[in-house]
């Protein structure tokens, strides 16, 4: 299969959160996934969820750096979407898919990987939501927006950077506890 230069550029763009690249992949692949879902007992909302999850799988793959796609983007997204939808249908005891797209690859490894990450994402989301304010904003400011401590201390009304730092660590300890308590339960 010809590793299209255009496709390579798209994947590179995707790994850098480039809006144009994401839009282009979205536009070229959404309809075919939606058709699959709708022809198989799904709604347009289901289609959106499934497609976006497949996009995340692709995103995670290109993020990992060493990734090389050995099929077309379309085939990859279709295969992953199909797999995700099949799994959802299995929960409702329906198995047979009516489908139009032929090209497919095996995505077992990808799915296993993705499910693990997806679980972790859910746990972090839950931990963050249970953390409460001001801890959540404080940690986001430091670890995600990478603002410096002086700045944060001023923004959150702490008397000095040292105070803000102590508070930040206390919050971090709590967040870690919330996260790992789920993590350990999960792995049991």
């Amino acid at each position: 299969m010809k590793a299209d230069n255009n496709e390579k550029a798209l994947l590179q763009g995707l790994s850098k959160n480039d809006k144009k690249a994401v839009e282009s992949i979205y536009k070229d692949n959404y309809n075919i996934v939606q058709a699959l879902i709708i022809n198989n007992n799904g709604t347009a909302d289901d289609a959106k969820d499934v497609f976006q999850e497949a996009m995340i799988v692709l995103y995670e793959k290109v993020q990992s750096g060493s990734f090389e796609l050995n099929c077309q983007i379309k085939t990859f997204i279709y295969s992953v979407s199909r797999r995700i939808w099949l799994k959802k249908l299995m929960h409702q005891n329906r198995f047979n898919l009516v489908e139009g797209h032929a090209d497919m690859i095996s995505v077992d490894d990808e799915m296993e990987d993705h499910e693990k990450r997806n679980n972790e994402y859910g746990m972090m989301e839950k931990a963050m939501n249970n953390l409460g304010e001001p801890c959540k904003s404080l940690l986001e400011a430091f670890y995600i927006q990478k603002r410096n401590m002086q700045d944060i201390a001023a923004g959150f009304g702490y008397t000095n950077a040292e105070n803000a730092k102590n508070q930040k660590y206390k919050c971090l300890v709590r967040l870690k506890r919330l996260f790992f308590s789920q993590y350990k339960n999960e792995s049991l």
Partner: peptide, 21 residues
Amino acid sequence: MNRFDEVKNFKNLLNENHIHL
């Protein structure tokens, strides 16, 4: 934490695109 943030942002980007398209 980093991964959480990345995926969260990416999800937002996807939603924006969906509405836009």
